[in-house]
């Protein structure tokens, strides 16, 4: 089975993203939403952790949440794909289950 994990907390605030990365299986996807979008930024204390999981897991970020926080798509980690809400919906349809990391 394949799972879409959503993370809505900044990695600076909670362990949601690190827990998700620890427990996501190969072939799963992670979508960063709300404050979780901040986990997509390059050059942070958490960027290596995110880049490290990307060989096994596809990582996406919700564009509107990135924009709302004044963070440019140019500054996200290489290989993270930006989606809008319809892209979010398609990701849920493409995977068998959805798991939220709050």
């Amino acid at each position: 089975m394949s799972t879409l994990h959503t993370v809505n907390k900044s990695p600076f605030e909670r362990d949601s993203l690190s827990s998700c990365i620890r427990l996501a299986a190969k072939g799963h996807s992670i979508l960063l939403i709300e404050d979780g979008a901040l986990g997509a930024m390059a050059g942070t204390d958490h960027s290596d952790m995110v880049a490290g999981v990307m060989k096994d897991v596809s990582v996406y970020v919700l564009g509107p949440d990135l924009a709302a926080r004044g963070m440019s798509e140019d500054r996200i980690i290489d290989g993270i794909q930006v989606v809008d809400y319809s892209g979010f919906v398609e990701l849920t349809a493409k995977h068998d289950t959805c798991q939220s990391w709050l």
Binding site: M1, T3, L23, A24, A25, T97, L102
Partner: peptide
């Protein structure tokens, strides 16, 4: 372990997070 739990998660139909 985390790896074992990841396998358990992989087998679920509905996941409710709190």
């Amino acid at each position: 372990s985390s790896a074992e739990l990841a396998e358990v998660f992989d087998d679920q139909d509905v996941v409710l997070s709190f």
